[in-house]
Design a protein around this nucleic acid. Structure first.
Lengths: 213, 213
DNA sequence: TCATGTGAACCGGTTCACAGCC
DNA sequence: GGCTGTGAACCGGTTCACATGA
């Protein structure tokens, strides 16, 4: 399969969300312009994206909803040995653990860690929080593919180093700093304060919306 | 001032973070290649960005650190009448309120709302949580520029409609759906589950890092 | 000599436009 | 006729390369 750009991967999530709604309402087929309307993209964009993932439809009947859901799943869904781990179980960490537990049971959390003795031992989602000091031991058996990092800035780099050392291949980082990691590890930064500044800037500038759906 | 692309706005936050560290350590001047190294960009990128915001340096001595911090602040910092409001004070909402209170006191929260009677009246950051039913009344006097939306998906669109109606100009949305809003409102979506899927995909693919700093 | 400022080239993602097919 | 699949054009952001100046 040809390389899939990040922008396409991001849209696949959105396609699938709407496809599931269509499937639930019994619709078996979609046209590119319908799907585009639903996620707020052009029909060419949709066709190009589906071409990129190697999915094809028919001029007469459009795209098969169920097959498309399945093909997107094959790209996005975790494999049986691909789990997550979370470090940092403050408010943000709890929000994440509980969100995934409720909404995305397909994304399995192998473990969760914190350093606060009051938090260690508590259960969120369905993870019992373990002492971050034991991170290496706990990850040694079945190393999760991706770590979600929701610790204070001052600990983020150190924890990231340990996660990489432990064999984690991707990190979703919420601490407001750029992690320094080897090129073999994929890192995505979510900087909430920076996003808020960005929204403020464009809201002030002259309110032009990003794309809908 | 010529239009500033979103990519530049995002980097300004990072430039400033490092500039403040330099300033604190007494450094008065930076060269584009130093600043680039710090945030993980090329020197051309830095020069182009500073050109875009109309900041100039000297070939002999580089860029003035303090002036640059100030000019970035003029772009990113909230004006005196530009505040935030938050709707949804669950775990995620609390994390956000407390983070900004502690780390970004310059970004003022005008108000915070929730619908849970157990949460209404509690204080997070320095906002007392008010009943979301009273949103219109509370926002009527001094309408915040930007709303941060951290409510469950099923309420997000309805709350967004009310916020827009109340005069909010930008929304930072954490609910996993694309809000439908008029073009005059700037919306930024933070979809944590989608980000996690993206990290998983690229981690699996062949771990290629995004840019550092 | 070395860094800035900037036109020009480049690149990857998006959109256009149309050939091919049901 | 209307839709898919796709080469080609387009566009905006990034990088190159060099003229200019201390």
């Amino acid at each position: 399969m040809t390389r899939i750009p990040a922008a396409v991967i991001e849209r696949l999530t959105r396609y699938r969300r709407h496809l599931r709604i269509l499937a639930a309402s019994g619709q078996r087929r979609v046209f590119s312009h319908e799907l585009g309307q639903l996620i707020g993209a052009t029909s060419s964009q949709v066709r190009r994206d589906l071409m990129t993932i190697g999915f094809s439809g028919s001029p007469a009947r459009g795209y098969d909803v169920d097959n498309l859901i399945e093909d997107i799943g094959a790209i996005l869904d975790p494999g049986p040995d691909e789990s997550f781990t979370q470090v940092g179980v403050g408010h943000l960490g709890r929000a994440i653990l509980e969100y995934f537990h409720r909404r995305r049971p397909d994304m399995v959390f192998h473990s969760a860690f914190d350093s606060d003795p009051n938090v260690i031992g508590q259960v969120f989602g369905n993870c019992r929080v373990q002492d971050v000091a034991r991170l290496e031991q706990v990850l040694a058996d079945a190393t999760p593919m991706v770590a979600i990092l929701a610790v204070p800035r001052k600990h983020a780099q150190e924890v990231a180093d340990r996660l990489v050392q432990a064999g984690v291949r991707g990190i979703l980082n919420f601490a407001p700093l750029r992690l320094r990691t080897p090129d073999s590890v994929y890192v995505e930064h979510v900087d909430i304060a920076a996003s808020a500044e960005k929204v403020l800037f464009f809201a002030r500038q002259f309110g032009r919306s990003s794309e809908p759906s």
